[in-house]
Amino acid sequence: MKVTVKFFAQLREQLNCSETTVSLTPPSTMADVKAALKLSLDNHQAFEGPILMACNQQVVADSHPVNADDELAMFPPVTGG
């Protein structure tokens, strides 16, 4: 299956990419998504720092299962307010 991942803030700038699509073999988790992104994107060091992951607009852990139609996103810790 193919999933699309959005990137925000520093991570978007470091990857020079606001969203990308990766292929996964189900069943997959967010950890699989991150591993696939490290392989497919040039600047994989961007994933070494603290990164939050969201599935369908909820922050989730590495073990969270992923389906093809999920809305996925990764971003650094937030700094609003």
Partner: peptide, 22 residues
Amino acid sequence: LKQSVPLWKKEIAEGKATWVAP
């Protein structure tokens, strides 16, 4: 809000923009 809402701040000084760390 400062912990749980996805917002990211950049500070601009001397023409340079720097992401704010938590």
